[in-house]
Amino acid sequence: MIVPTRRLLLAAPALLLMPRQAGATQAAMEEAVRGFTGGAAITRGRVALDISPLVENGNTVPLSVIVDSPMTEADHVRAIAIFNERNPQPHVITAQLGPRAGRAILSTHIRLATSQTLLAVAALSDGSFWSDSAQVVVTLAACIEG
């Protein structure tokens, strides 16, 4: 039996502050990304993930992704996908575009369960994948709380 020492009692609140293991993890996100790329290598660059670094309300977070691409029949963005690290599910949105889009830009509003890293991946017509990530701090979480 553990004798409740003064030191143990002082340590008790620290246990309450331990992060809850709720939601997706880095590994889950990587698997979701693999599902999108089919295991192909992803290069950083050409993609710009635009999101506020400090978010007050995780229930609606404006976000936009712009990919540097001429959007011609020969060279265009096929799809853009957004992933997160610590929501209950790693996938956020997958959008299919084509040369008729004119520009590779996508804006939407998302939910964030906690402060985390977001990843945007663009699939180009030549089969290459490009990405950008963004770190976001959230003060009021979404998803879990009623």
């Binding site: 299919q96 008729r100 998803c143």
Partner: peptide
Amino acid sequence: TYDGAVVFSAELSPAIAANPFLSFTTVAT
């Protein structure tokens, strides 16, 4: 779709906020 041809489509997850907003572009043909 624009004149019958799909110009943009998206699969949404629960991570999309209530009252989904989407903004995208297309070429006026």
